[in-house]
Simulated assay, not measured.
Amino acid sequence: MLSQIVRPMVRTQIRLLANSQATRSTLVNTIAQWLGFLGVHAQVTQLDATSNKIHVSLTVGKPEGCDAHDWQQILNNLDRNGSLEHTVPSEPFTTPSPQQTKLQRLLAYVIQVGHPNGVPAWEMLQPQLAELGFDEPTLLGIKSALKVPQSLDQLIAGLDADIAAIALPKAVSIALLDRQVNPSEDKALTALLDAMKQPVAP
């Protein structure tokens, strides 16, 4: 499923970047999202466009599954050669306002179907979602939407392709919080992928 999602998602996000009024912050967030799929917690510290290429500098945390001793040894080895300075924190994940409520409800749906035996307490979910880069208004919207059942068909109906492209990587990250994708989550991701394939408005 993920292999079917990644390539069209990248193509659509590239089109969105070309039409974005906030290309730099959008690209910063996108790079962090892509690395997050690999279990790597990364923050973009520098991004410049020169000579027909984009140069990116990253701050990378200990990858999931990495032995703590090995990671510390890597840090010790690198520290001998100095460290990067002047870090630029990436901006939190935000969405355009017109469809923000629908997006929050859709992400709440992914959480709901990912926990068929009952959604965990918000105190447990909130830190995990915050690590994915959601801003406080989005978190509050998801919290509110979790209180009522959501309908995938209603949420997908009329969903803009650009919003679907923004939502899909976040939905994938939410689905992978437990390291597996169940059939209901797969259905939601597929529906988002189909919505994303619509032509992007110029």
Score class of each variant (00 low, 15 high):
Leu106Ser: 04
Asn19Tyr: 08
Asp70Tyr: 02
Leu107Val: 02
Thr23Ala: 14
Ser20Arg: 07
Gly114Ser: 05
Asn29Tyr: 01
Leu17Phe: 11
Thr95Glu: 12
Ile31Lys: 05
Ser20Trp: 02
Thr30Leu: 10
Pro96Asn: 08
Ser51Met: 10
Lys102Leu: 05
Asn76Trp: 04
Val40Phe: 01
His115Cys: 07
Gln46Phe: 08
Gly61Leu: 03
Gln99Tyr: 07
Pro89Asn: 05
Gln46Ala: 14
Gln100Trp: 03
Ile74Lys: 02
Gln21Ser: 09
Asp67Gln: 12
Pro63Lys: 01
Pro63Thr: 00
Val44Thr: 13
Thr23Trp: 11
Gln112Pro: 05
Val28His: 06
Gly114Asp: 09
Asn81Met: 11
Asp70Lys: 04
Leu16Ile: 06
Pro92Ile: 04
Ala108Trp: 06
Gly65Lys: 00
Gln112Asp: 03
Leu103Ser: 13
Arg105Ala: 14
Val110His: 05
Pro98Met: 09
Val28Tyr: 01
His86Gly: 14
Arg80Glu: 09
Pro89Gln: 04
Pro63Ala: 01
Leu103Arg: 03
Leu103Phe: 07
Ala32Gln: 13
Gln104Ser: 14
Thr30Lys: 08
Gln21Glu: 14
Pro98His: 07
Ala32Arg: 08
Thr26Val: 03
Leu78Arg: 06
Gln72Phe: 04
Glu64Val: 01
Leu106Val: 14
Trp34His: 11
Asn76Met: 09
Ser57Gln: 13
Asp70Val: 12
Asp48Ser: 12
Ser97Cys: 03
Asn81His: 12
Gln104Asp: 13
Gly65Val: 00
Glu64Trp: 00
Pro98Arg: 03
Tyr109Gly: 05
His41Trp: 01
Ala49Met: 13
Gln104Thr: 11
Ala32His: 03
Leu27Ile: 08
Pro98Gly: 05
Asn19Val: 04
Pro89Thr: 08
Pro116Gly: 02
Arg105Trp: 07
Val40Trp: 10
His41Ile: 00
His86Pro: 00
Leu17Asn: 07
Ile111Gln: 10
Thr94Val: 15
Leu47Thr: 06
Val60Glu: 03
Ala32Ile: 01
Ser51Gln: 15
Val40Lys: 00
Ala18Phe: 06
Glu91His: 06
Val56Asp: 11
Pro98Glu: 08
Thr45Val: 10
Ser20Val: 06
Gln46Tyr: 09
Ala68Ile: 10
Gly61His: 07
Leu107Phe: 02
Thr26Ile: 01
Phe37Met: 10
Gln112Cys: 05
Asp48Ile: 15
His69Glu: 15
Val28Cys: 11
Gly61Cys: 01
Asn19Arg: 15
Ile111Ser: 00
Gln21Gly: 07
Leu27Lys: 07
Val113Pro: 07
Ala68Lys: 12
Ala68Arg: 14
Gly65Arg: 00
Ala42Ser: 14
Ser57Asn: 15
Phe37Cys: 00
Ser90Met: 15
Val40Ala: 03
Gln21Ala: 10
Gln21His: 09
Pro96Glu: 10
Gly65Asp: 00
